[in-house]
């Protein structure tokens, strides 16, 4: 199986463990990923906050490269990049005039037909069916699946099922032997891109998420977004100071959790890179 792959800056920069775990489970399951050639940053929050045309053009260049590489579908594990690519595809795809305008900026025709897969789309379709036979170490833990914003909203454009209470990660975690708890903050915002410029906001918002998960007995939080991960993991000290409370609650990418259940070496899954150590009894 050949699937296009857009890692995005976070997976190459501050969240290498997400990339490592995606690669590790794909090679364990015989799925090969083809990286989009000479890809650029999607522009993230900064572009759509300050420069709309740039916020459309940067993802459009990525889509153009995917098309030139002959990729029919592209896996975008980073929730933020996934959201931007889907939004841009939706906006430009529906508007002929905008297509022309963006083509002019790109200096090449807009080609945006590649199917963009989120990590959850991919896991549900390509990984879930292979899991049952390959699980070596079931994760017998109570966990909280945290989806955040960017994988579920806007629900119509992303075609998100049960956007107020999504289930796809929960389902995978149950397959891995874990108990996915029912909790209230699955899709609340973590503070996202204000991590540096308004750390206090992140401490408050991410703090509420940790608090609810811990209160309901979760032993770990499972995420699928580098921004959520860095806010809940790297910013843990700031959160704990802000709430005046310590949380013994590691945060793992869903791909790391799958890797562990498949028996892959934790180091290969990047689990040693976390600020909050992952010492789950497996």
């Amino acid at each position: 199986m050949n699937i296009g792959f857009y890692p995005g800056c976070s997976m190459q920069g501050s969240s290498p463990e997400y990339n490592e775990s995606v690669q590790a489970i794909c090679s364990a399951l015989g799925i090969s990923l083809i990286e989009v050639s000479d890809w650029n940053c999607c522009g993230a929050t900064a572009a759509h906050n300050l420069n709309r045309e740039l916020s459309l053009a940067l993802p459009a260049r990525i889509l153009a490269h995917a098309a030139a590489d002959g990729l029919e579908e592209v896996l975008v594990p980073c929730a933020a990049c996934y959201n931007r690519l889907k939004m841009v595809q939706h906006e430009i795809g529906a508007d002929r005039k905008l297509q022309d305008s963006i083509s002019e900026i790109l200096d090449e025709p807009y080609q945006g037909n590649a199917r963009i897969l989120s990590i959850l789309d991919f896991l549900e379709r390509d990984v879930e069916p292979l899991l049952a036979e390959k699980i070596m170490k079931p994760l017998k833990q109570k966990i909280a699946c945290y989806y955040g914003c960017l994988l579920v909203r806007p629900q119509n454009i992303l075609d998100a099922k049960r956007h107020e209470d999504p289930q796809s990660m929960d389902h995978i975690m149950q397959l891995l032997g874990a108990e996915a708890i029912d909790w209230a903050f699955k899709t609340e915002c973590c503070g996202a891109g204000l991590s540096v410029s308004k750390t206090g906001v992140v401490a408050e918002l991410s703090g509420r998420i940790l608090d609810d998960a811990a209160h309901r007995g979760a032993k770990a939080i499972i995420v699928a977004c580098p921004m959520c991960h860095s806010n809940l993991d790297m910013r843990r000290k700031a959160i704990e100071q802000h709430r005046n409370k310590d949380f013994d609650l590691p945060v793992m990418y869903i791909t790391q959790a799958i890797g562990l259940a498949l028996g892959i070496d934790p180091v290969k899954l990047g689990l040693k890179r976390h600020f909050v150590p992952v010492n789950l009894e497996l």
Binding site: N40, T45, A47, L50, L194
Partner: peptide
């Protein structure tokens, strides 16, 4: 201002490198 400065710095990094350099 700090929020906008962050966005500006972010875009600058992309403009120069094509990808974000934290």
């Amino acid at each position: 201002s700090p929020i906008i400065d962050f966005h500006k710095a972010f875009l600058k990094s992309i403009e120069v490198n094509g990808r974000l350099h934290e």
